[in-house]
Amino acid sequence: MRFLRALGLLALVVTVAGCGGSKFRTYDGPEVTRIHVLKGQRQLLLMHGPYALKAYEIGLGWAPEGDKQVEGDGRTPEGHYLIDKRNPNSKYHLSIGISYPDPRDMAEAQALGFSPGGDIFIHGRGPSYERGSPRDWTWGCIAVTDDEIEEIYAMVKDGTPISIHP
C-alpha cells in the first residue's frame, strides 16, 4: 500500500512539474536558414531557403532611422551578421546575440573617434516593459514579445545568418 501511495505521489509531482510552463521550448520543424530584419516595416522574418516560416512585428532602437554608427546612438545596426550567442538569463526574458560589430562597423566608429558599441540582441520585453511604451525603445536591439522570443530562441541556431535591412 505504501508503495502504491508513493508511486501515486511521484506521478502527481511529475504531472505538476510538466505543467510549469518553461520558457525553453523545443522545435522540430524546418531549419531556419536565415533571418531577415526589415527595419522600415518593423518586421523580422525567419526563413527556410526562399520561404518565410514565421514573421514577427518588432521594436528597434529608440532612434530607428539609419545605421548604427557609435555606442549609445540608439540605432539598430544594418548589415549582414551571424547569430553568435545566447543569454538564457537575459533581463529581457531570453535573448540571442548578433555578431555586431564587424570590422566595417569598427572602422566607421573609429573614424568618428568613438566605440561602435556591442551587445546587440534579439530579445523579449522582460518584466520591466510597460504596456503603452513606445514601439522603438531599445538601445539598438530588436525586441519581440516574451512568447515570441521563446519561439525564436528554440527555432534559431547559433551560426544562423541575419541580414538587417533599412
Rank of each mutant, 00 (worst) to 15 (best):
R25Y: 12
A6N: 12
Q110D: 13
Y92W: 08
D136K: 08
I152H: 10
G126F: 07
Q110S: 14
R42E: 09
R5S: 13
N89I: 06
D102E: 13
E78A: 04
A17G: 05
M106I: 15
D119H: 13
R131K: 15
D67T: 10
A63M: 13
K85A: 14
I120P: 07
W137L: 08
F114K: 15
S115G: 03
E31V: 12
Y153T: 02
D67S: 12
D67V: 05
K39V: 00
G8E: 04
Y56C: 07
N89S: 11
E108D: 15
L94E: 07
I96Y: 00
G113P: 09
P116R: 09
E108Q: 15
H93A: 05
R131G: 14
G40V: 01
S133K: 10
M106E: 15
V144K: 07
E150G: 06
G72I: 04
G74M: 10
T138S: 15
Y129M: 10
Y27H: 13
F121Q: 04
D84M: 09
H165N: 12
H48E: 12
I162Q: 03
I162C: 02
K68Y: 07
Y92K: 05
G113M: 08
I149P: 07
P88E: 12
Y81R: 09
E148F: 02
I96P: 04
H165R: 14
K23S: 02
M155W: 09
L12Y: 08
G8L: 13
L112V: 05
I96Q: 00
T26E: 14
R75M: 07
P161N: 09
V32W: 03
I142F: 00
A55F: 06
I122A: 04
D102P: 01
W137P: 11
V14G: 06
P161Q: 12
D119L: 12
Y56M: 02
V37P: 07
E78P: 07
Q110C: 00
G20L: 14
G97L: 01
Y92N: 05
G79Q: 04
E71M: 12
F114E: 15
I162R: 03
G40S: 11
L45K: 14
K68D: 07
R131L: 14
S95M: 06
E71H: 10
F114V: 06
E71K: 13
S115P: 04
G74R: 04
D136W: 08
G59Q: 01
T160F: 02
T160Y: 04
T76I: 03
G20Q: 09
E151W: 03
N87Q: 11
V14Q: 09
F121P: 00
A111H: 08
P101C: 03
G97H: 03
H80Y: 13
R34D: 11
P101M: 08
Q43E: 15
A52K: 13
L94Q: 03
F121M: 11
I164D: 05
I35Y: 05
P166A: 11
S22A: 09
N87V: 05
S133R: 12
R135P: 06
H123T: 00
I96G: 03
P103I: 03
I162D: 01
A11E: 06
R75H: 12
S90K: 10
V37H: 07
P116W: 06
Y100E: 06
I164Q: 07
H165Y: 15
